[in-house]
């Protein structure tokens, strides 16, 4: 029984479909990585789950969370869910915290809203949450404003806000991208530890396969608004089936390998207005055949243990 089940999710802005046919499951306590370049639709997927699509965005399909379809849930019920059993942290810790409210207030208001805590209790709980995310001198920091904190500390504060109500599912949208490399490792360690401690499921969105290999159990690779490949992290890294996954993996710098040019993927992700008719990766794919451009390939199980949307998956791998 999965905690969250996304089935055939599509998101469109007016006539433009930025996302279609996206399906995946997350089990309780599982860490799922969603990987792709910018423009692949991974953030849009997360926002659709939260019911926070930008103005004009419409979602179709099914998003089942604890037996409830989030897409048909009224806004009030969604509000009770957000920040309580589903929480989200964002890419930019600099701009994601409200500059005119103290860190403590921003944590405490979640507790007051969802747990009905009183001001004093919520403040005390905010301090222990800051300690949980390993912020030093939490008693002092709780009354400080975001601009008084470093980038890494702000992201820790964001995590504290998200964890305030012990969510069943944490959605982390590129939580380390905006941070220095050394700080990144610290945040990832923290997330891994907290996940084990609190037993929550994590949907980790990233463009960095290194991060994925670090903490994810299963991976969904997205390209141009569709799922390209999905499967257990180990299988995907050992035996990627989709040419796009292979290209992504080849682009990871490795400490042990020979120092040379990283094979970058030629071209860019097409914009939703001019997605190709067939396989959307075909124009950039070294293995493309005329057949690839006829119809979109369906996601299918492969003997290698992953699912991939590529008609030539067997030949390529």
């Amino acid at each position: 029984m999965s905690l969250l089940s996304v089935q055939d999710l599509a998101v469109s802005f007016g006539p433009t479909r930025v996302l279609e046919g996206v399906s995946f499951d997350i089990a309780e306590g599982e860490v799922l990585g969603v990987v792709g370049e910018s423009g692949s639709g991974k953030s849009m997927t997360a926002l659709a789950i939260m019911g926070l699509l930008p103005i004009g965005g419409r979602a179709a399909g099914r998003i089942t969370f604890q037996d409830r379809d989030l897409l048909t849930l009224p806004e009030r019920a969604m509000q009770r869910l957000r920040g309580d059993s589903v929480a989200m942290i964002f890419q930019e810790p600099m701009s994601s915290l409200n500059p005119v409210l103290t860190i403590g207030e921003q944590i405490a208001e979640v507790l007051r809203r969802h747990r009905g805590m009183r001001r004093r209790d919520a403040h005390a709980e905010a301090v222990s949450l800051l300690k949980l995310v390993e912020i030093a001198a939490a008693e002092r920091r709780v009354d400080e404003y975001p601009h008084q904190l470093s980038g890494g500390m702000r992201q820790r504060a964001m995590i504290a806000i998200a964890l305030a109500c012990r969510p069943k599912l944490l959605i982390a949208d590129e939580p380390t991208t905006a941070l220095d490399a050394t700080v990144q490792a610290g945040i990832l360690d923290l997330l891994r530890g907290l996940r084990r401690e609190l037993g929550m499921a994590v949907l980790l969105i990233t463009h960095d396969l290194g991060v994925v290999s670090d903490i994810c159990e299963r991976v969904v690779v997205m390209y141009a608004g569709r799922v390209a490949e999905a499967g257990p992290a180990g299988r995907i890294f050992e035996q990627p089936a989709h040419p796009y996954t292979r290209a992504l993996l080849a682009a990871i710098p490795r400490l042990e390998g020979p120092i040379g040019d990283l094979p970058a993927i030629p071209g860019v992700v097409p914009s939703p207005a001019d997605f190709p008719k067939g396989c959307r990766f075909a124009p950039r794919c070294a293995h493309a055949r005329p057949a690839c451009e006829v119809a979109p390939p369906v996601l299918r199980a492969l003997p290698s243990g992953t699912e991939a949307a590529c008609i030539r998956a067997e030949e390529v791998s």
């Binding site: 929480a87 500059p99 809203r113």
Partner: peptide, 14 residues
């Protein structure tokens, strides 16, 4: 349009 407004909504604030 700011990110912190989205954060507030993600926290379930009415």
């Amino acid at each position: 349009r700011q990110d912190y407004v989205r954060t507030a909504r993600a926290k379930g604030m009415p």
